[in-house]
Every structure is written in C-alpha cells, then in structure tokens.
Write a protein that binds this DNA or RNA. Structure first.
Lengths: 203, 203
DNA sequence: ATAAGATTTAACCAATTGGTTAACAAAGTT
DNA sequence: AACTTTGTTAACCAATTGGTTAAATCTTAT
C-alpha cells in the first residue's frame, strides 16, 4: 500500500535523479548528488530503487517515452509528407523548449550502450522510419515533390530541429545569449524550419 | 632530451587516450583503460602526464584545435557568403568523416565545464561569429540575399553539417546502415547542404 | 495502547579508481 | 667499467563511490 508520503518521497527521488542524470549523464552522476538534491539519505535511494543502474534505467525510460512515441506516431500516421514535417517540427521544438537537455542525454546513452538502447526503446518492434522513407519515395515518384534521397530529407529535418538543442549551451556561450532569447529563437524555428524544408522539395 | 623510444611511448599514450576519451568521455574513461589500450603500466601515464585532468586537457586541446581554427578562419575570411558556406560544409564534413566522434565529445565538454571550455578554445579573443553575422546582415541589406535572421542562417548551416555526425550511432542503429554507407551519405551532403542553404536565401 | 509493517537514517563495507613509491631496467656519459 | 639520467613496473595508498545493515522512527490496523 502506497500512501501520500511514500509517493512524495518516490517522486522527490525521481525528480532529483532526472535532474542529475540529465545534467551529468550516467557516468558523471553520483548517488550522493541525487540524494542531496532530493534532500534524503543515500540509503533511501537503494530502498526505493535497488541500484544506480535500475534508477537510471527508470529515468531513461521516462525521458525516452515522453518524447519518442509521439514522434514515431507522427511518422507512422496517414498525413501527407508536408503535414508530417510541419507537425514534427512543431511537436518536437515545443517539447524541447521545455526539456532542452533531453537530446544530448539520449544520444550519449546510445553511444554508451547501443544495443541496450535499441532493446529498451524499440523492444521487438521495427524502427519506425521505414514507412516514412517509403512515403517519401512514393511522393517523389508520383511527382508530388522533387527527387531527393529520402534519408537525406529525413536527416535534414532532424538536423534542423534537434541540433540547436544539442548545441544550446555552446550557442549561448558563444553568442552571450540569455536562455530566454534562445527560447524565442527556437519558437521562430517552428515555422522557419518547415518552410525551408518544404520549399526545398516543393514542385 | 627526447629520444625515439620516448616519443613512441608518449605517442602511444596520446593515441590510446584520444581513443578512450573520445569513446567514453572524461567521466566514463578509466586510466587503466588507457594504460591497457596503450599496452603499458598505469604508472607510466602519470610519469608522462601528471594526472587524468592534465591528460584529458591535452587530448581536448589537440582535438579542438584540429578543427576549430580552420572553421573560424573560414568564417573570418573575405570570401562571399556563398563561398564561405560551401567551404565550411566541405571542410567540416571532410574532417568529420575522418573523426566522427569529435562533435559529441566537444559538446559534452562544453556541458561539463562551460567556462573552462570558453577559456581553453578562445583564450581572450572574441567569439569568431560576429564578423560572419555582420556580413550576413550586410548582404541582406544590399539585397544580395533574401532577408533572414543571420543567427538562424548560421544555425541552419551548422545543424545540417554537424547533426548527422552527432547522431551517427543512432542513425546507423535505426537504419541498420554500415559505417561505409554512412560515409557515402555524408559525402553526398558536401554538395547537398550548400545547395539547400544557398537555394533558400538566393534572390 | 500496541503489535506489525513500512520508512528513514547513521554507520559501515567492499570494490573501484586516481595517484604514489620504491625498486629495477635501459640508455647515455664520462 | 662506473655512474647518472631516463623509462618502466609491481605493489601499495587514500579517497571516492555504489551498496548494505541494523537500529530508530513513523503509520496503521487491531
């Protein structure tokens, strides 16, 4: 039986762990850091979650599943290509303005344990890009868009949406820009990026 | 006095350290890993480089200075904007095909120690983007290119060149692509990216 | 009230890890 | 050859760190 106090503590731990793991990554994070951040004793971490690995696993799954399924469902939908591009850019940028550390966190985890990552986020299902790539090919053949390697088109779209968040610390460092201005810049990109992409393939 | 044996050992260490640090990052790397990779005793690492921090510092400076100055000099040159874009894409992609782990390594270091990074790569010099941004503004006012926020244009260019390398492990994982095919894809982008960017701002 | 169970903590433990030491080997120097 | 300097190693050390334990405190059902 879980009472309010329990849930509150568990939530404090999860919030603290999310913050520390997102900031420092699995290798850089210390269990003591997380305990301090949550304002509790370190042993409690092991009481609620057995090990650092388990705790990280849970955070990772929460973080990954807060983003990836929504993206995948856009790719898999029956919308036209242009609509998909618009929806993706808007959904993705909206989300990342709220949680800017997520992309680099996920990339680092892919780097750290490529196979484990695959299993965790996809299980046994196929990677959800195939349908999208086929759609691009079809629309190309149908003469709806200019000929382009489908994978390059996908890469372009992902690049323009994701990279700014990956590089946001460096961008803010080099330009001396405040976080607020950076967010405004990203807001602009919700329209700018689809424009650029769609303009480049429109017939 | 440094004889051939010395240099050979020092080089073995540097090569090993570069490999391990690029793969695992500062936090994930172990001195023992580096010693094993170099085929030497761990104490030798401390004999040649005093500490893990010092060794990492040296690797980081080598890695950063193998790339950044060339890029900066392109930005600072007197070429036209279009030429700069073409040169940047070609230079950058050519380099990263050879050293694909560098971008994420650098981004992670920025994240880990933003201030230290600034000092290390720039010293007291100004960030080298100002001149480029001014040039974009000028060419816009002169009617040479369509109006666009200079920073957005820069972001677009960097995104399209850098992101694929940041995400290369994930891309290869999700598409089942071999490293060789990935490189071919990147070769294509040397032309594709400048085309896309320039087409979008040409009057 | 009190027994039973759940939660929290201080203290501790074992493994890992960056770093040191002292002895040994190799290479110049004289 | 004898000596000095440089390079290399095995063994060790101290700090950090993930994890455990046993006792204490709090909840809750009876």
């Amino acid at each position: 039986m879980v009472n309010t106090r329990d849930r509150s503590t568990e939530e404090k731990i999860l919030a603290a762990a999310r913050k520390i793991f997102l900031n420092k990554g699995m290798d850089g994070a210390r269990m003591q850091d997380i305990a301090d951040e949550a304002g509790i004793n370190k042993a409690l971490l092991h009481y609620y979650f057995r090990s650092k690995d388990k705790l990280f696993e849970q955070i990772f799954l929460e973080v990954a599943s807060s983003m990836l399924p929504r993206i995948f469902s856009i790719f898999q939908s029956d919308d036209t290509l242009f609509t998909k591009i618009e929806k993706f850019c808007d959904t993705y940028i909206t989300q990342e303005i709220k949680t800017p550390y997520v992309p680099i966190f996920i990339l680092n985890e892919v780097n750290r344990q490529p196979q484990a990552f695959l299993k965790k986020v996809l299980g046994n299902t196929r990677p959800p890009v195939e349908k999208l790539l086929q759609q691009i090919e079809q629309e190309t053949k149908a003469g709806l868009i200019k000929p382009i390697d489908p994978l390059q088109l996908l890469l372009n779209t992902l690049s323009l949406c994701i990279f700014p968040f990956l590089a946001s610390p460096m961008i803010q460092l080099l330009t001396g820009m405040e976080a607020k201005n950076f967010r405004a810049l990203m807001e602009e990109r919700k329209k700018l990026v689809p424009q650029l992409i769609i303009e480049s393939i429109k017939n």
